[in-house]
Simulated assay, not measured.
Amino acid sequence: MTLLDLQITRKRLVAQGIVSLELRDPQRRPLPAFTAGAHIDVHIGPQLTRQYSLCNAPGDTDRYLLGVLLEPHSRGGSAAMHQRFAEGDTITVGAPRNNFPLAPARRSLLFAGGIGITPMLSMAEALWHTHDDFELIYCARSAAHAAFLDRLATAPYAPLTRVHLDDGPAAQRLQMDRLAQEDPATTHLYVCGPKGFIDYVCQAARAQGWPEPHIHVEHFTPVAPAGGDALTVRIASTGQSIEIPPDQSITTALERHGVSIPVSCEQGICGTCVTRVISGEIEHRDGGYFTEAERARGDQMTPCCSRGRGTLVLDL
């Protein structure tokens, strides 16, 4: 894996609980290129890596720009980004990767909820640059919680941007019946944000006949980190069977029985924990690491957040 030691050249508050961080090479060398929707792994400390979307224009080669929400129940990642790292500090990151790319389409709809605006900013920049037809729909609790409003207001694609605030007039709130005006056969829909927001947008799209391949989703947190049916994991190399409690991830439960699987993001995004499944029914809960075709094969999973039914035999 390519690792880069970058300097935080600018850090500022862009909304309540959200900071932006600008990262540059200390020697001002060009950075590895990235595509719209990409993220980088930020190595915050030993065994602590988090993924953050790049929100600057894909054509930028001199910097990476991140937006980070301070999670109320932070497991160390967002708290460190907000409180420990300051301008001038050096931080280690991985080269950009993209699990949420743009697909060729006649038209694109970008739905962002809260901090989900970050990958959409990069997408909007890319689509504007290529003169593609698109619209950016940004929803937030209030103007105080909406990040990068100043950037959106002055962007060349400002006329293509719609901002909806929960505390605003009812007429200005998001109404999904607007999808009836779109052509699902030629339009692709992208959505990122809190789970409730993602579910709301996706359910509305499906109800109006949107084909599944035209709905693209990125989760910033696991869909359901715990809970589910009774589950037993069998270790193929030893035959050991381990019961997985509903309130524990597979990796946590196995670790307590002496079986260690490397983990990083714990959200099914980075792929560090990907494990081959020899047999059993997988309940995929990864944050978009696998494609639908890969999920359908049923031969690998992200045990940091995914589960299963009955007994899973893992190639460990």
Rank of each mutant, 00 (worst) to 15 (best):
I235E: 02
T275I: 06
G268T: 00
I278P: 10
P213V: 12
G227C: 11
P222S: 08
V274C: 13
S264K: 04
I269Q: 00
T252M: 09
Y289L: 07
S260A: 12
G268E: 00
R206Q: 14
V263C: 04
A253N: 05
D286P: 02
V277Q: 01
H257I: 10
V263S: 02
R285H: 04
A230F: 05
E283V: 13
E218W: 02
C270A: 06
H284K: 06
C273V: 00
V277D: 02
S260C: 08
R234W: 07
I198G: 04
T187D: 07
D229W: 03
A205Q: 04
V233W: 01
E218L: 13
I282W: 07
Q240I: 10
P225S: 14
T232P: 06
G271H: 02
E255T: 14
S279H: 12
H188R: 14
T186K: 07
G196V: 09
D199M: 09
P245S: 12
S264L: 03
G287Y: 01
K195N: 08
Q240H: 09
E292D: 13
S241G: 05
K195G: 03
R206Y: 07
T291H: 10
I244R: 02
G239Q: 12
C270G: 01
R206G: 07
T252V: 12
P222N: 07
H216I: 06
P211H: 06
K195E: 07
V217I: 15
E218C: 09
S241T: 14
P262D: 02
E283I: 11
C265D: 01
E255P: 03
T275G: 03
C265F: 04
P245R: 13
I250G: 01
E243Y: 15
Q267M: 11
G258H: 10
E283C: 08
A205C: 14
C265Q: 01
R206A: 13
R206V: 14
P222D: 03
L189Y: 08
G209A: 11
I242A: 09
S264R: 06
V201L: 07
S279G: 12
P222Y: 00
P213D: 12
C192A: 13
R206I: 14
V217Q: 15
I244H: 03
A185W: 03
H188N: 15
L254M: 13
Y200P: 05
A226S: 15
A236L: 11
E255M: 11
C273L: 00
H216Q: 14
P246C: 05
S279A: 15
Q248M: 15
P211E: 05
R285C: 05
E281A: 09
W210R: 09
V274F: 03
I235D: 06
H284R: 07
D199K: 11
D229T: 11
E283P: 05
T272G: 01
V274I: 14
A204Q: 12
I242W: 03
G228Q: 03
A185S: 14
